[in-house]
């Protein structure tokens, strides 16, 4: 029961309470750039969710097995070279470059896949598809996972692959929810009489700010959920 509770809390936390876009303000460029039409925004949300899942899987694997201090692979190699040593090999410096590497590769993969099977979506994305590479939401997801592997006080609190994937997928879903809602509002805004100085980017950023404030209403939901699930 405690396990289910932690999974539910991680997913609700990443998707709603600490929404990547509306709480941490990462991934703003596609949030504003591709939120003109609902179907495009939904497609972007799906693409980001897909990329963030692959990136989270790969980055968790590499962080856990290779780059964290005392990771199995490095410990084993160190043991072969210098048996009996207590020292720990730390490859944490590689974290960022590995994350960027896996994100760029998975974006390239998604791009090829979309080009083959969804040419219309591919055309609609245009430049924003390669820009997922530099989408901070995805790097943010990887870094958050890293924080829960290397930055924990005891090994028991360390995130396994299951929790990392749940975090990444629900973070991506949170992004998709935010951008699709934004696109819905902006489609309605096209029909509204927006004051001249606020047209375009101005009203979009205002709406984003109001949405972020609305999402603050989810604060505390996790405590209620925890009490409910662990009753």
């Amino acid at each position: 029961m405690e396990y289910i509770a932690s999974i539910v809390l991680i997913s609700v936390g990443a998707a709603l309470i600490n929404n990547f876009v509306l709480h941490y303000f990462v991934g703003i460029c596609p949030f504003v750039g591709v939120s003109r039409r609902v179907e495009m925004a939904f497609g972007m949300g799906c693409a980001v969710t897909f990329v963030i899942s692959i990136a989270a899987f790969l980055s968790w694997t590499f962080t856990y097995f290779v780059t964290r201090p005392g990771a199995p692979v490095t410990t084993w190699i160190w043991g072969m070279v210098n048996p009996g040593s207590e020292a720990v090999v730390d490859l944490s410096i590689l974290n960022y470059i590995i994350y960027i590497f896996v994100i760029a590769s998975s974006v390239q993969f998604v791009e090829m896949y979309l080009r083959k099977f969804f040419p219309a979506l591919f055309k609609a994305f245009g430049i924003f598809l390669p820009l997922i590479t530099t989408n901070c939401a995805i790097l943010f997801g990887c870094l958050e996972i890293m924080k829960h592997i290397t930055g924990v006080s005891s090994p028991a609190e360390m995130w396994g692959l299951d929790k990392a994937l749940v975090f990444a997928v629900s973070g991506g879903i949170g992004f998709a929810i935010a951008i699709t809602m934004m696109a819905g509002i902006r489609e309605e805004l096209d029909l509204c009489d927006v004051p001249k100085p606020l047209e375009g980017a101005g009203i979009t950023l205002l709406v984003a700010g109001i949405m972020a404030m609305a999402f603050m209403g989810f604060t505390g939901v996790d405590r209620g959920l925890e009490a409910l699930l662990l009753k």
Binding site: F62, V66, T67, V73, T74, I77, W78, V81, N82, V89, D90, L91, I93, L94, I97, I98, F101, V102
Partner: peptide, 13 residues
Amino acid sequence: VTIAVAAGTMLVL
């Protein structure tokens, strides 16, 4: 060893 393992990791990746 750290440098060698780091280089090996990036190569494998």
